[in-house]
Design a protein around this nucleic acid. Structure first.
Lengths: 339, 339
DNA sequence: GGTCATGTCGAAAATGTTTCGGAGAGCTGA
DNA sequence: TCAGCTCTCCGAAACATTTTCGACATGACC
């Protein structure tokens, strides 16, 4: 279609339709005082002339732009809390949060597309970004904030996390304080930084107490329910089965619960379980799950505000922020049963 | 603050700032040819005069645009599935999904703001819209699609739901087929259409089988976990307690599980529970929850595609679409225990 | 000093929206 | 049949905003 030398205006369309400019404006705005026949005619001519509105007026001084919130896999309870926190913070700032799920194609065109679509920044959750992707983002001048990144790139990237080591330590110490000695860890990907920190917290607490980490007591996974079922089964079927399990996520903890139930183990009488995250499912588990609270909503909010600050060109105090974790004791933990 | 008799215009602000209308317009649009001092002065007076833009022009047709996905309360497992479905469909269509949580102010300015921010349509989930809000949306020419609306407005509004009656019927029939006769219903808001349909399905099944709905066997709630705890407690403490409970949502079902556990009831040996939705938490419950699957992801996807079709001015086949529900049998149901 | 680039600003034109009044159709009752 | 009334539909004109373009000042540079 040849681009006409001059964009069509209401006057153009009005003239060709034989009506006034006002009438065309009314059609565009859905006013009721236009006869159906006239409306159809004008609509047809609007299309024919390829009418596009001139630059829209701004909504507000504030209401510009949006931030992309990108997850690396299907959404779950963890994602939900992050979204909730980001959306709340965004509402205050007057920007929109566009949720998306990572797709394979992350090229230069992808980064430019985000900018063209009006994104002011990108927040990537539990993702693993390649240097190529980072370069594409940098070239497109799109600020990036990571939440719980799987890998911490060498280059300076802003990231948000929580005190995973302290959380792992607190969870394990609590189980030890209940008299448990045989405590297993069913965790996330071995390479993930946040999982490593939790695992080290677990190991540190065990070591201080002189409790041995028996062979097979540390299982890797992907923070998902299924990992809890299989990982839980693996440790519960060991010759010297644990009396307590520390899971690296609430979902995994629920999977372990199911593995325990399948073996006729009662919780917490026969097996204590501690989760990680304190998502909504932790409260809704039966029994309610003792877990390490990770302030996911706050993390989402902080990530969003940080992203906007980066987009505004402000300097950030620190390139990595860690929010505090804390143990929430519910019903899935009890003193170890007397042998 | 007293409402001035007439809204401030650029002319008002220009006069008080001692500059021309054009200059004020430039400040608003961030043009570069305004001296910093002048800009500050004008910005101050804009705020002082409480300037708000008049109805914005429609967002440009060219940009990819975005669709607003609005929830009426904090996100939960149900929301997560809807988001997931909408995001997937949006990715295919090349648009963004902006997630937001309903706030009190839903005025004409709100609707205009959405349009100005580039939203091509609004999807409202389990919301109750007033006629005023509908009018504001219509005036702003913002297409609207409802998912599981609480109230079905008189005016023609496009909505997406599922076969709630059939779902309620199937769940109750299944419990009856297991030999249960004393079946209670712990549901949602009495006024919600989707809840009413589920309840009627339950009643219909009971009636066909000649099973009495005892006094107190129908509890209202808000689909939340807490409603299950209290509603479950209410029916379980009845003189003639039910042997099975049909919950109007998975969350509520998990609350009932907790109420049962607190009373020493085993599931499914002592009490069968059927949920509704088949969210992720249904699979992760212990025991896994028998539930009526509602195709939430598909609903989110259909809502998004419908919204885009409306935005494109296409005609919609039907103003209300219902997707099929289906019973998913897991571990929370069993044959009634012999008395 | 002359010339030129640059930054600011406003008059005027361009574009789009809203108000308001009027033409004309249709209906009603004497 | 016709006056009177209402209701629908449209456009002239008033308004609101954006954009273009020229004017003017200022300072740099030769």
């Amino acid at each position: 279609m040849p681009v006409s030398p001059r964009r069509a205006t209401l006057a153009t369309v009005a003239a060709s339709a034989g009506v006034s400019v006002a009438t065309v404006s009314k059609v565009l705005n859905g006013r009721s005082d236009v006869a159906p026949a006239t409306r159809s005619l004008v609509e047809a001519l609007l299309r024919q002339h390829d009418y596009v509105a001139p630059t829209p007026r701004r909504a507000d001084v504030t209401g510009l732009g949006s931030v992309e919130l990108q997850f690396d896999a299907d959404l779950n309870a963890y994602s939900t809390e992050i979204i909730q926190g980001a959306v709340a913070a965004a509402a205050e700032a007057g920007v929109g949060v566009v949720v998306s799920i990572r797709r394979a194609d992350r090229t230069a065109a992808w980064a430019r597309g985000l900018v063209a679509a009006g994104r002011r920044a990108l927040i990537a959750v539990t993702s693993e970004l390649t240097t190529g992707q980072l370069a594409a983002l940098a070239k497109a001048r799109l600020p990036l904030v990571l939440i719980d990144p799987l890998n911490l790139p060498r280059t300076r990237v802003t990231s948000i996390g929580s005190t995973n080591f302290a959380g792992g330590l607190a969870a394990t110490q609590y189980l030890l304080s209940l008299g448990h000695r045989r405590i297993a860890y069913v965790g996330g990907p071995a390479a993930a930084a946040c999982n490593q920190a939790r695992l080290h917290g677990y190991r540190a607490a065990m070591e201080v107490e002189g409790a041995p980490v028996l062979p097979g007591y540390v299982q890797a996974g992907h923070f998902r329910y299924h990992d809890g079922v299989t990982g839980g089964a693996a440790v519960l079927d060991l010759p010297r089965a644990p009396t307590a399990i520390f899971a690296a996520s609430d979902e995994t903890a629920l999977g372990i619960m199911e593995a325990a139930r399948a073996r006729g183990l009662r919780i917490p009488e026969d097996l204590s379980i501690v989760g990680f995250d304190d998502t909504q499912i932790a409260q809704m588990a039966s029994p309610p799950l003792t877990t390490v609270r990770q302030p996911l909503r706050e993390m989402g909010g902080v990530a969003l505000r940080t992203a906007l600050r980066l987009a505004a060109g402000e300097k950030i105090d620190s390139h990595h922020v860690e929010l505090a974790t804390g143990l929430v004791v519910r019903g899935s933990t009890a003193r170890v049963a007397p042998a």
